[in-house]
Design a protein around this nucleic acid. Structure first.
Length: 308
DNA sequence: CGCATATCCTGACCGC
DNA sequence: TGCGGTCAGGATATGC
């Protein structure tokens, strides 16, 4: 399941193999892939053809490529969300179509194609106009991929918060907004309008590292604890990114989620019954939010005033 | 409006 | 071998 580190691996692959190339034609092979593009698939084809891919940018789990017209101006971006099972692949024209091939872009240089493959069709593609960011820019100093395209993002992504690896992320603002919520801590971490890029896997891992229970009420969470969760998110995502960055082939823009490489490093997620790496207590699995939460019963005791 | 839940989808897996 | 049930979960529509 692609979360922030997996999407960043994909972004880097696009930066290496797609940015700077001119798209000759676009093709969408499944109606669901463009369901978020309100003007319809024909419009998406038109607006992502005969353009040059100017950059590859990410915020949280959203990925986009500003598309430059003949004058070099980019007013639109090709926006991709991988959903649960989406993959972006860079492959030669002779490679057979994948069973779940949903979209394809051919390039004017006749080099490898870009393909979107998605078994479960939770992912999607849209062409969206670029608009200024609400908080006015990336903050300038970092390596974050959004920095090069500065203060712009697709209009349909404007409601998504910055992610923990973004140098312009507002730590104090996050803690303040978190404490205004009346909910449980993990619910809040999964809310992409508060902090983006966090899914079930990294939420569980960060909570384990911070020794906090998923149902800890946000309203009374100390600021220091909120900042510790943020720090844990940054650590685990950076480690996963480092692990993922070593394993992908140069012509394969890999997204295999955590199953490919980082699963060996998971302390809690998917580890039901196995000993907690810190204290040896068997990791427990709880049904929560229509999915599973994994935690250590000893390191992460359920608070007496647990939210739900 | 804030918060919680139902829903979309397909393939792997399990017990019988 | 097949069959029904369960599970995986990101984002959003809907409901309270």
């Amino acid at each position: 399941m692609p979360e922030l580190p997996e999407v960043e691996v994909v972004r880097r692959g696009l930066a290496d193999h797609v940015v700077g190339r001119r798209v000759a034609s676009a093709e969408f092979l499944h109606p669901r892939v463009t369901r978020r593009h309100v003007e319809g698939p024909a419009d998406a084809v038109a607006r992502s053809s005969a353009v040059t891919v100017a950059d590859a940018v990410r915020r949280g789990k959203y990925l986009w490529m500003p598309l430059a017209d003949a004058s070099g101006t980019a007013t639109d971006a090709l926006l991709v969300h991988l959903g649960m099972s989406g993959q972006l692949l860079v492959e030669g024209a002779d490679a057979p179509d994948e069973k779940h091939l949903r979209a394809r872009w051919r390039f004017a240089d006749d080099g490898p194609q870009l393909r979107f493959v998605d078994q479960r069709t939770f992912g999607g593609v849209a062409v969206a106009p670029l608009v200024p960011t609400a908080d006015g820019g990336p903050g300038g100093r970092g390596e974050h991929p959004e920095a090069s395209w500065g203060a712009w993002l697709p209009a349909s992504v404007a409601h998504i918060a910055r992610d923990p690896l973004d140098p312009a992320f507002d730590d104090a603002g996050f803690a303040r907004r978190l404490r205004l919520r009346t909910t449980g801590l993990k619910r809040a971490l999964l809310d992409q309008t508060l902090v983006s890029g966090v899914g079930n896997i990294y939420a569980d891992e960060a909570l384990w590292r911070a020794r906090l229970h998923y149902a800890r009420p946000t309203r009374t969470l100390p600021v220091a604890a909120a900042l510790q969760v943020l720090s844990a998110l940054r650590d685990v995502m950076a480690e996963a990114l480092a692990a993922g960055g070593t394993s992908f082939d140069s012509l394969y823009v890999d997204v295999n989620g955590a199953s490919g490489y980082f699963d060996r490093s998971l302390a809690a997620y998917g580890q039901e019954g196995r000993p907690c790496p810190r204290c040896g207590t068997p990791i427990r699995r709880d049904a929560f939010m229509n999915r599973s939460s994994f935690s250590c019963p000893r390191c992460q005791p359920r608070p007496r005033n647990a939210h739900l």
